[in-house]
Design a protein around this nucleic acid. Structure first.
Lengths: 199, 199, 199, 199
DNA sequence: CATGAATGAGGATTCATTCAT
DNA sequence: GATGAATGAATCCTCATTCAT
C-alpha cells in the first residue's frame, strides 16, 4: 500500500483550509487574501487551489459547513421537539445554535459577518430550512397558534433571532452574558407567539 | 461678492460627493472605486481627495449622513412621541425610518450593507442614540412597563427591528410588501412590551 | 491653457508603448511580459493599461500598425503600378515592403514572428488586401495572363513571397544579401506568371 | 527473461509520451501544460520527468520525430527519384510530405506552429537535409538546369513550398482542396526550374 | 520506478493615491 | 483649486518542477 489513502488526506487538507479560512476571515474580514489563508493553513497558495477552485469557494466552503451544522442541530429530534410548548421549543433550538457557534472560533467569525454572506447559496438554503421548521411548528400547533400572517411572522421571527444573536457575537466586549440574551429573546418570541394564540 | 464663500463651495462639493458615493455604492456595492465616485459626481479623482482623506472617508461620510438623518427623524418631536402608547410610538418611529431609507437609493445601499458598516463610528453613535430613545420610553412609562432586564431587552428590541428591516431591504425580490413587515414587527414588539407590563 | 493637449500626449504614449512592445517582442519573443514592455517603454505597468486593454492589445497594436503600413506602400500609386509588366510590378512591390520592414527594428521583430501572429485580425485584413491586389493585377492583364486556378495561384504566390521573406528576416546570420533574395523571388514569380500566359 | 528489457520499456514510454504531446499540442496549441500531456498519456506528471528533462524536451521530441519522418520519406529511394524529371520529382516529394503530415494530428499541429518551432535544432537539421536534396537534384541535372544562384534559389524554393503548405494546414476552413494547392505549387516550381534551364 | 500532492516563482491586471501642470 | 495621467503595491491564479511515500 504505497499510496496514502487519498480520500482521507484530502479531507484533512480541506478541513485545514476551511479552518484557516475561518481564522483569516476572523482577522482580516472580507479583505482576507489567498495568501492570508495559505499562511494561516501553513501551506502554499498552490495547494489551496488544488482543493478549491478560487477564493470564493473557500468562504463558501466555510459557510456551507456552518450552515449544514446549524441545520443539523435544529433538525435533530425534530419530531420530539415539535411536541414541546413554544418557549421550550424556541429556547432549546436557540441554545443549541448558540452553543454550536460559540464553541467554534471559525463559526464565530462567520457569525460576525453573517449579513455580508447572505448571498452565499448555502446560507440561503439554511435559512429556508430554519424558516420551514418555524412554519412547521406553527402548523403543528394550529390549535393553539393562528398567526394572522404566517409568512411574514416567520420572516420576522427568524431574522430577529438570528441577526440579534449574530450582532451579539460581533461585539468585541459584550456588556452582558449570552444567557441574558437568550432569555430575553425567548421572552420576546414567546410573547409574540402568545399574541398569535387562540382567544 | 465676486467669489462664492469658501465654506459654501466646500459644502456643496462634499454633499455632491456623498451623494455620488451613495449612487456608486448602490450600483457597485462594496466594489465601488474612487473612479466610480468621481465619475458619478462629475469631478476628477483629484478633486475627491481635496475633500476626503481617502476612500473610507467617503463611505464614512455617507454613513454618517444617514445615521444623522435617522437620528433626526426619531429625535424630532421626541417629547410628544414619548407620550404615545407603545404600539403607536414604535410604529411611528419605524415608519419614519423606513420611509427615509426607502426613498433614498444611497441609503438603501447602506442598509443592504449595514452589518459590514457596523464598525463605522457614526453607526455606533446612531445605535447608541436609538437605544437611548428606547430606554427613555421605558423609563418614561415605568408605571406601565417594568422590564426585568432593561439593558438586554433594549438590545434585543433594537437589533431585531433594525436587522429585520435591513434584511428585508436587501431582498432582491421581496415576497411581500413593507407594510406587512412593519405590522408584524409592531405586533411582535407590542407583545413583548406588554409582557413587560405591570401585573 | 492648463491642460496638456490630451490627444497629442496620448499619441506619444501609444507610439512609445508600441515601439517598446516591438523591442520586447524582439528580445523575448512570445514570452514577453507586461513588465518587459513597461520597462522597455520606461513607464509603469499601470500606464500601459491606461492605453491598452490588455497584453494582447499591445501586440495587436504593433501588428496593426505594420499591416497598415504594408498595405499603404502597396496601395500607393496602385493604378500606375497595375500598368507595369509583371516582373517590374512584383519587384517594385516587394522592394517597398522589404525596405519598410528592414528599416524598422520593430517591424523586423514582427516579421520574425509572422506565422505566430496570423490569428491577429489586422494580419488577416492585410493579407486579404494584398491578395486582392495580386488578383486585380491578373484581372487587369487578363489578355496576357490567364491562370488556370486564380484563387489558388494567388494564395501560393502570396504565401511563397511573404513567408520566404519573413523567414529570411528571421535568420540570425543571413548567408546572402536581401538583393539576391528579391531577385530570385522575382525570377520565380515571373516564371510562374509567364507559364500562366497566353499560348 | 522475467522483466522486460529496460531499453524497450523506455522506448514504449517515450513513444507514448511523444504521441500524447502531439495530441495535447493539437488540442491546446502552445498553451499545452505538462498535466495535459500526462493525462493524455495516462501516466503521472512525475513519470513524464523520468523520460524528459523538461517541457521543452517533449516538444523537441515531437518535432524531432516529425522532422526525422519527413527526412525519411524524402530520402527513401532518393537515387531513383533523382532520375525523375523535375515536376514528377517535386510533386512526388511534396505529396509524400503532405500525406505524412495530414495523416497525423500531432504533425498537423506541429505544422500549424512550424514557424514558432524553427529554433528547435531538429527542425534546422531537417531543413538542411531537405535543402541539400534540392541542391543535389540540381547538381545531378546540371545539364538541364543551371541556376544563376543555386544557394538562393534553393532557399526560395524550399521556403516557398514549406511555408505555403504549413499555412494551408493552418487554415481553419481551407477554401480549396489540398490537391489544387499541390498542383499550383508544382506549376510554380516547375516554371521556376524551367527558367533556370539551358537555352 | 511511479505517483501526484505540494511548492512558489511569475504573470496579468486593478485601483487607491499622488503630483506636475 | 482642479485635473487626470502616472504610479506601483497588492492580488488572484497558473503551472513547471520536485520529492516524500
Amino acid at each position: 500500500m504505497r499510496k496514502p489513502p487519498q480520500q482521507q488526506r484530502s479531507q484533512v487538507m480541506v478541513q485545514n483550509l476551511i479552518e484557516a479560512t475561518a481564522r483569516a476571515f476572523d482577522r482580516r474580514g472580507l479583505h482576507l487574501t489567498t495568501r492570508d489563508v495559505a499562511e494561516e493553513a501553513g501551506v502554499s497558495v498552490g495547494s489551496l487551489y488544488q482543493y478549491f477552485k478560487n477564493k470564493d469557494e473557500l468562504l463558501a466552503g466555510l459557510v456551507s459547513r456552518m450552515a449544514a451544522d446549524v441545520s443539523l442541530v435544529v433538525m435533530r429530534n425534530l419530531p420530539q421537539r415539535l411536541a414541546l410548548d413554544y418557549p421550550t421549543f424556541y429556547k432549546s433550538c436557540l441554545l443549541e445554535i448558540v452553543a454550536l457557534v460559540s464553541d467554534n472560533p471559525g463559526y464565530r467569525a462567520v457569525a460576525r459577518h453573517w449579513h455580508e454572506l447572505s448571498t452565499v447559496q448555502a446560507v440561503q438554503t439554511a435559512e429556508q430550512q430554519l424558516m420551514e421548521v418555524a412554519r412547521q411548528y406553527m402548523l403543528h400547533h394550529h390549535n393553539e397558534y393562528q398567526p394572522r400572517d404566517l409568512q411574514v411572522s416567520v420572516f420576522v421571527g427568524y431574522n430577529s433571532t438570528v441577526y440579534t444573536v449574530m450582532r451579539y457575537l460581533s461585539l468585541p466586549h459584550p456588556p452582558f452574558g449570552i444567557d441574558r440574551l437568550v432569555n430575553e429573546l425567548t421572552e420576546m418570541m414567546s410573547a409574540y407567539a402568545e399574541r398569535n394564540g387562540k382567544v
